[in-house]
Design a binder for these strands. Structure first.
Lengths: 242, 242
DNA sequence: CGGTGGTTTGATCAAAATCAAGTGAGGTGG
DNA sequence: CCACCTCACTTGATTTTGATCAAACCACCG
């Protein structure tokens, strides 16, 4: 499997790409790198000149505020381009960091800009990706603000399972998610101690388990109901119909 | 002043547009409508076939969850296109509603699609707008999650003042913001009662006042410090340099 | 002049934070 | 091979922030 295959699969879920588009995507000059866990990919105030496609591993997007607290704003999984926005926003307004060891394919901004100038369908597909990312942020806002901690965690897991499934990385409603409870807390806006208690509660309610860097959803319909998860905001395949 | 002037002014802050682009923007067929306060513009699950440009008033983007609570995810002011994402995401995943009485200019999706196909610079400018919106969502996530209620409110006001200023709608660090304390609570993830107490605290600390649908920032540098506000995420003018 | 919606104040309650002190597993060096 | 270190996880006790409940208060409006 080539590095860009997962991305193409994801793009084709919603946007029609012809052979020339696909060829151009395969022809992109990429530089593949392996990174350790907790390694910075881009830092706030950087001015990157390349984007990275996640081939393997989990990536987080986070910001550190005045009090020293860190907030994780999104997770990115294989097939995602976490820093696609840097193509048009010069200066990073947050950090992008590996959560687990990861394999990334870097593409120069200039090559991407050439690609989207000559292949409007690809441009539209990428634009749409950034719009879905934005929809995920909106749901993240809702999740942090209106749901109590257990439903909040449940919702995050329901979303991740769904996105993993879409790129074929979930089997039997389980998926790899190598993250510490402290980091989960930074994503959910709760302390590591509270994450621990919430995880126990969800496990004892038969919703999900987290062990050995793996999430296992015990009862998916129940989890979805408990979390108030509605997949509409992921906009899977709703672009096909245009 | 024409309806689209504020939008063009905003686009030109960051993207170079030539005369043909500007002409094409002015040539867009628009339908201007006035709406009362608290009127729905688009609802979750709708499939809109037009976008709206805010000419006057304040617009909110919100979602209602299973518990019945409503979360406001963004505010939009004149010059913004709050539902630009509907151009590529078929189905609305949230509601768009007027906060105050508003004047809106509606543009058909088809006309916008023609425009961006023939004018790539405009396409890029709009794409960039959606990326800045996403950056604002990210900061909103941080704000809701890591800051205590008073700093949270202060941060929202610091951001709004900044955005109002950019379109010339702020004088002497004050601006029109016709919103109830209950709605402010829905934006900040706190109750209306708590909003009231926090507003009193900020006023007595000499940071800002809210009266008669108007926010007056008493001490801007102090407010910015108190809120931990860093304008980098608004990406004003950082696209000019490309 | 009474109704209504928004604001204000006070009293009590609950979710999650904080503080503190464990346990347990993996990794390193003597 | 074992002692020790470190880091993640776990558990319990206490505190805090903001929620909830309840009752005025006030201004505008029909």
């Amino acid at each position: 499997m080539r590095s860009v295959d997962l991305m193409i699969r994801k793009l084709r879920l919603h946007t029609a790409l012809d052979d020339a588009d696909i060829e151009a995507l395969y022809a992109l000059p990429i530089r593949v790198r392996e990174l350790d866990e907790r390694t910075s990919i881009a830092r706030q105030y950087d001015r990157p000149n390349e984007c990275c496609l996640v081939v393997r591993g989990t990536i987080s997007r986070s910001k550190i505020v005045e009090s020293g607290k860190r907030q994780i704003m999104s997770f990115h999984i294989p097939g995602d381009i976490p820093d696609l926005e840097s193509l048009f926003l010069q200066k990073m307004d947050h950090d992008i960091t590996t959560v687990s060891p990861a394999i990334l394919a870097f593409v120069a901004h200039q090559d991407l800009k050439n690609l989207i100038r000559t292949h409007p369908a690809v441009a539209q597909a990428y634009w749409r990706c950034t719009l879905v990312d934005a929809a995920i942020y909106r749901e993240w806002i809702v999740n942090l603000s209106v749901r109590p901690a257990p439903a909040r965690l449940a919702h995050l897991m329901a979303e991740l399972r769904h996105r993993m499934e879409a790129v074929g990385l979930s089997v039997d409603n389980g998926f790899e998610f190598p993250i510490s409870q402290a980091e989960l807390g930074e994503a959910l806006g709760i302390t590591a101690v509270h994450v621990n208690r919430v995880l126990q509660a969800l496990r004892s309610e038969g919703l999900l388990e987290m062990r050995n860097n793996r999430v296992t959803v015990a009862n998916l319909p129940k989890l979805i109901r408990y979390a108030g998860f509605d997949e509409v905001y992921l906009h899977e395949a709703d672009g096909r119909l245009q």
